[in-house]
Computed example of a mutant assay.
Amino acid sequence: MKIKVGIVGGAGYTAGELIRILLHHEFVELGAIVSSSSAGNAISSVHDDLVGETDMVFAAELAGDEDVVFLCLGHGNSRAFLEKTPLPETTHIIDLSNDFRLEADAEFGGREFVYGLPELNKSRIQQAQSIANPGCFATAIQLALLPLAQAGKLTEDVHVSAITGSTGAGQSLSETVHFSWRTNNVSIYKPFTHQHLGEIGESLGQLQSKLDVDIHFIPYRGNFTRGIFASVYTPSDLSVEEARELYKKFYAEASFTTVSDAEIHLKQVVNTNKCLLHVQKFGKQLLITSAIDNLVKGASGQAIQNMNLLFGLPETTGLGLKAVSF
């Protein structure tokens, strides 16, 4: 039996990635792909990487019989959509915005949204009705810090520098995604105030009670299209050998997160649902580098991983994606 899938906000980058991957998911039947701006037009006219892959067209509304609906709407718009268009209680929702990620926002319309980071909440996800998919920066940074939190080793402030590709800003036009501005350029944005800090703090606090450290986060805009590379460091009394063992033990059963003995780089993860981590020690500072594809593990791939868990499938189903290194 196939899982009938609907997508709302079908013209954006995250929806395009969902469609690309789900077209080849053996247990999925793609239903209505809703776009208010492109209803009636061929999906491949917007997502032109899908030319020859599908002849589906964008719909104006959901069919109403979906098993799961992915909400690929801008931040604040998922809540507005559900207020206007309540979905049946039997329909699972996986929301890719930040509307329901925080504990204070998790209850909505009789639903409870479970925070969808499988490496943290796998058993809760398997029993959930609705999922709040994590943010892209949040995914990369949390996966770099969860083992330390579980061991109670986050005792001093954490410093993070992380760079993301232009697709992290979405498909809407703005000065900072314009080719002439972005090319041969690097800049910071939302220093120390990025919206993903809230969900990161709640996840770490879930593992380490009485967590009392600040996370100093500087996000960078990169002059490339996709991927996130994060450098995370904090003072630690662990030796590098102890830290690497801690990380490898924590992620021993993780399907997509791997602790590499060698230094990592972005091309190893682009187009995949993988997170690669590498642990080093310099004096008192423990350095963890983390790399993901912001559109896959940071968004659509992780959403499909969550869907697999919701429906009792192996979480790797449909996600056997290989990086393109050259």
Rank of each mutant, 00 (worst) to 15 (best):
Leu154His: 08
Ser130Gly: 04
Thr316Asn: 13
Phe311Asp: 05
Thr272Phe: 02
Val69His: 00
Leu146Thr: 08
Phe224Asn: 04
Ala140His: 09
Gly110Pro: 01
Leu287Ser: 01
Ala299Glu: 10
Ser180Ile: 13
Ser300Thr: 05
Val5Leu: 09
Gln285Glu: 15
Val213Thr: 09
Gly298Val: 08
Ser166Leu: 13
Phe326Thr: 15
Tyr13Ala: 11
Ser239Gln: 05
Asn271Gln: 11
Glu202Gln: 13
Met307Phe: 05
Ala230Arg: 09
Phe224Val: 08
Gln129Phe: 04
Ser78Met: 03
Leu287Ile: 10
Gln195Tyr: 11
Asp237Asn: 13
Ala80Asp: 14
Ala80Gln: 14
Ala303Val: 05
Gln302Glu: 09
Asp214Arg: 15
Glu103Val: 10
Gly110Arg: 02
Glu89Gly: 13
Leu211Pro: 07
Val8Gln: 01
Phe282Trp: 09
Phe192Ser: 06
Gln171Arg: 15
Ser44Lys: 10
Phe179Arg: 14
Thr167Asn: 14
Asp99Ser: 07
Ser174Arg: 12
Thr289Ile: 00
Ala104Trp: 01
Leu246Phe: 02
Ala254Asn: 12
Trp181Arg: 15
Asp48Met: 08
Glu112Ser: 12
Leu276Gln: 07
Gly12Ala: 01
His159Asp: 11
Asp212Glu: 12
Leu102His: 00
Val270Leu: 04
Leu82Lys: 05
Glu315Leu: 04
Asp105Ser: 07
Gln302Arg: 11
Phe282Ile: 10
His194Ser: 11
Gly152Arg: 01
Ser45Leu: 06
Tyr115Val: 02
Lys249Trp: 05
Thr176Phe: 15
Tyr247His: 01
Thr272His: 00
Gly152Glu: 06
Tyr251Gln: 02
Thr257Pro: 00
Met307Asp: 05
Ser44Ala: 14
Asp67Cys: 01
Arg111Gln: 10
Gly222Gln: 03
Ile264Asp: 08
Gly298Glu: 09
Gly6Ile: 01
Phe81Leu: 04
Lys281Cys: 09
Trp181Thr: 15
Lys190Pro: 00
Glu156Gln: 13
Ala144Pro: 02
Pro134Asn: 10
Gly110Lys: 04
Ser45His: 04
Ala15Cys: 04
Lys4Leu: 12
Gly320Val: 09
Leu30Lys: 01
Ser180Arg: 12
Lys122Met: 11
Gly64Lys: 06
Ala104Thr: 13
Leu173Ile: 13
Gln305Tyr: 03
Ile218Asn: 08
Ala254Met: 02
Arg124Gly: 07
Leu313Trp: 05
Leu287Asp: 03
Thr193Phe: 07
Lys122Arg: 14
His75Ser: 14
Phe113Ser: 05
Gly12Lys: 00
Gly52Pro: 00
His75Ile: 11
Leu238Val: 06
Val57Met: 09
Gly205Ile: 09
